[in-house]
Design a protein around this nucleic acid. Structure first.
Length: 178
DNA sequence: GCTAATCTTATCAACAACCTGTTGATAAGCCCATTAGC
């Protein structure tokens, strides 16, 4: 999706998380797991994270990127290599057999207060800010990142709707005047 | 150039209050999302 060029974006760019460098052994394990199931549930991601000694959120991102690359590959070279042919059958059955999601995180009012305040200050916090917030409210950084994503999304939807709401209000006023 | 990190948007699903709205989690991205570190 197109991203805007707001000043906030610059803040994000400067504070990216440092790139994770997976070893060959780690990649072997991840690729094998991907062949078995490109949509692993939370339990599998946690197990993988433990196995290759990394964070579960990095496993999630790796699978997201892998799926994206894989989609491109499948389109450009259908029924080509072993990898593609092995993954041809993923689809409906696979979606049906998807593993459980992560448990719903519940935030306390004080945690939410801290997050909202931070959001108003900067809706695009970099890794340092997110980690600081995570530490402050005692929630994993990955959850803080997801919270900001959802918050921005709803904020954008709300802002898109606002002009419509104003229009309809104006129309109602005009109707009442008549 | 490859790919991890990040973004927006749409949708699913858990939860609080009791049928529906709110919001966290996840998936897709088609001029094959964009950005940026190695």
């Amino acid at each position: 999706m197109a991203q805007d060029n707001s000043p906030n974006k610059t803040i994000t760019m400067n504070q990216r998380r440092s790139r994770t460098k997976f070893t060959e052994d780690q990649l072997k394990i991840l690729i094998k797991a991907f062949h078995q199931n490109p949509y692993p549930g939370y339990a599998t991601k946690q197990r993988l994270a433990l196995e290759i000694n990394t964070d579960e959120s990095r496993i999630q991102i790796w699978f997201q990127n892998r799926r994206a690359r894989h989609q491109c590959q499948k389109k450009s070279e259908p029924d080509e290599d072993l990898e593609s042919s092995q993954d041809q059958d993923h689809s409906e059955e696979e979606i049906q057999s998807r593993e459980d999601r992560r448990c719903h995180t519940s935030y306390t009012s004080s945690q939410l207060h801290t997050l909202i305040e931070a959001f108003m200050n900067n809706p695009y916090p970099g890794i340092d800010t997110r980690e600081q917030l995570a530490k402050e409210i005692g929630i994993p950084e990955s959850r803080v990142q997801i919270w900001f994503q959802s918050r921005r999304s709803r904020f954008h939807v709300q802002r898109k709707r606002e002009p419509d709401d104003q229009d309809s209000e104006q129309r109602q006023d005009q109707e009442q005047d008549l």
